[in-house]
Write a protein that binds this DNA or RNA. Sequence first.
DNA 1: CCGCATCCTCTACGATACTG
DNA 2: CAGTATCGTAGAGGATGCGG
Lengths: 136, 136
Amino acid sequence: MATKAKPTRGVETGTYEAYMQDCPAVALLSTISNRWVSLTMCTLGSFGDPMRYSHISREIPGVSQKMLTQTLRMLERDGMVSRTVTPTVPVRVDYELTPLGQGLYGVLSQVRDWAADKSDEVDDARALYDSRQTDQ
Amino acid sequence: MATKAKPTRGVETGTYEAYMQDCPAVALLSTISNRWVSLTMCTLGSFGDPMRYSHISREIPGVSQKMLTQTLRMLERDGMVSRTVTPTVPVRVDYELTPLGQGLYGVLSQVRDWAADKSDEVDDARALYDSRQTDQ
DNA sequence: CCGCATCCTCTACGATACTG
DNA sequence: CAGTATCGTAGAGGATGCGG
């Protein structure tokens, strides 16, 4: 809503036209808008406390350890998640949202809640769409 | 936040453990958490009025027509977007968010705004992380 | 102008096996 | 337990050309 500004003309490089240009915000939004990123953030955020690798893994249906490790590394690199290694034997590794990550979780959880609330409506829309393609 | 409920035990099929199971909400969240979906929704939502195909295409940096068409079809099927064909010559096609889509835009725009606000912080975190890997 | 069809490339991702 | 490394495949996604 903040960036809403109707275009005065449909000309290139207009103020509105440029709002979504090659800026870092679009790149970051693209990074966030990823299946494993959102599921990982939601898992970590809704648990609230530090979680062990295996725990996270169990919480996210269908994630492979490769994808989970890769996603956690990316989130750590981006400052969303902190990784704590406890050199016991065997090793214990805990992941936790940073304050930055908690901020993202705040908005992502709204998306998750919206999805949970509207999934029935979406299913209905799909069924309707598909039936129209089938018969017609 | 609504689904927050600490686990009483780390046992499988516990109430918390199951919160993100094979339910349709996770599937829908996975569908939404997609680069082109979020960029398309944000473009349509921030413009507010019906947009022509070519206009949307110009607004989203780096999208191919294949991906845009595919994404718009998916969003139409899911009831987020309505597609209006005006049989002029040449054809004019307009896309617009449905009420359902506007609801999703409401939460997605928060994610976009968060990304716009925090992109600098994330860049710093990346630079710090990378420097630690390089030297040491 | 809109967008489907085809072809082709590349990488995201899963499966498996191996280490500290 | 928490990874890394390697390999193979399916699907994402770009380029091009045609059709209503």
